[in-house]
Design a protein around this nucleic acid. Structure first.
Length: 350
DNA sequence: AAAGCGTGGAG
DNA sequence: TCTCCAAGCTT
């Protein structure tokens, strides 16, 4: 039996979350805002996104303003949010859309843009343009797996769950209210059909939920466990001149933290570095002092950095490698990822 | 198509 | 401390 779309829409009308990128009932969020929020929300919580979203919109009120901005500035505005390829794709995407002259409104046209995959294309189409499609994100996968009691483990079950989710969309009420229906599914997953301890008592779809009937809602969806992440080691150097400025450099255009600003340092490897070996990678000869360690967990590795600091009189009187000088006041505007901000904080900066 | 790609918060 | 998680995309 197909759960009733109108039951969900009624529930949504009463319990919808008030979010910065969500228009009041009856209103419509501009596609630029929908798109920006969707990119920021990829693998990122609402609480984390909120301050970034409002800051980003004040800085780039229109997609044209974003398109014209230097990539460095966009990365700086994104610093701390993670998954920095999103920011690079966002910028490239803004330029493509600005060149088009209008925001694409169909799933295939959206899908062709950088940083927009199957999920995001459907989300923008449904939310901003009312196209009757269901965006299948983690919320919808969870809701669907419980509704139909699908215990095939993710990510193998992804296609099956997408097919089942499409069944939800066969009702006229769902198709006629595509924007609300999509967001209602998100809210159901975020507030009722939660990963742990779902509140099935309050769920508008509880009478039709197969997992609830079997008492296995909390066990779904099943996920294949992932392997342990390797531990890596590195060292970085906080070099200051007598004016207090810091020596920084830009990371390579590909790979981890691509294009972001960093402290100069060693590469990151599985084997720990001896002090002597680490210091041979220092940006200058100086009296280096070990400040301490920073541990940072990335998606696929754990990194331990040894932080050294030293002071010299003038940067230009030393043979420094690639890099640039940055005043302490200007650090905030740099595209410094969180791991680097931790290192700077340990050395007493920022 | 499996792996790479950030971060901070909750339990 | 540790594991899992949050509106996934790209190669």
């Amino acid at each position: 039996m197909i759960p009733s779309a109108s039951a969900l829409l009624d529930w949504y009308e009463r319990h919808r979350r008030d979010l910065p990128w969500r228009a009041p009932p009856g209103g419509r969020t501009p596609p630029y805002h929908v798109w920006l929020s969707e990119i920021m929300l990829q693998q990122t919580t609402v609480v984390t996104v909120k301050p970034y979203y409002s800051r980003f919109l004040s800085r780039y009120p229109t997609i044209e303003a974003l398109a014209k901005a230097p990539q460095e500035d966009v990365l700086a505005a994104w610093a701390g949010l993670g998954y920095y390829t999103r920011a690079r794709n966002l910028h490239a995407c803004a330029q493509q859309i600005a060149a088009l002259g209008a925001f694409p409104s169909t799933v295939p046209a959206l899908r062709a843009l950088p940083g927009i995959g199957d999920y995001t294309a459907r989300a923008i189409a449904a939310i901003a343009f009312g196209v009757p499609v269901v965006p299948v994100d983690g919320n919808v996968e969870r809701v669907t797996s419980r509704l139909f009691a699908i215990d095939t483990p993710l990510p193998a079950a992804r296609r099956l769950l997408a097919q089942q989710a499409a069944i939800l969309n066969t009702e006229p009420a769902a198709q006629a209210n595509a924007s609300d229906f999509a967001q209602a599914l998100f809210d159901l997953g975020a507030t009722i059909c939660t990963p742990r301890a779902p509140t099935c008592i309050l769920c508008p779809w509880q009478p039709r939920c197969s997992a609830y009937a079997q008492g296995i809602a909390e066990k779904l969806p099943v996920k294949t466990p992932r392997g342990a992440k390797p531990q890596k080691y590195g060292a970085c150097f906080v070099l200051r001149d007598r004016h207090g400025a810091v020596w920084l450099r830009r990371r390579p255009e590909k790979g981890l933290l691509a294009g972001m600003t960093e402290l100069p340092g060693t590469n990151w490897r599985l084997e720990a570095w001896s002090e002597q070996e680490a210091l041979s990678h220092a940006p200058a000869q100086a009296e280096w002092r070990e400040v301490g360690f920073v541990t940072h967990v990335f998606t696929h590795l754990t990194l331990q950095l040894t932080v050294y600091d030293a002071q010299i009189s003038e940067f230009r009187s030393h043979p420094l490698g690639e890099g640039f000088s940055c005043s302490v006041q200007a650090l905030e505007a740099q595209a410094l990822p969180s791991v680097m901000r931790k290192c700077l904080a340990l050395a007493g900066l920022s």
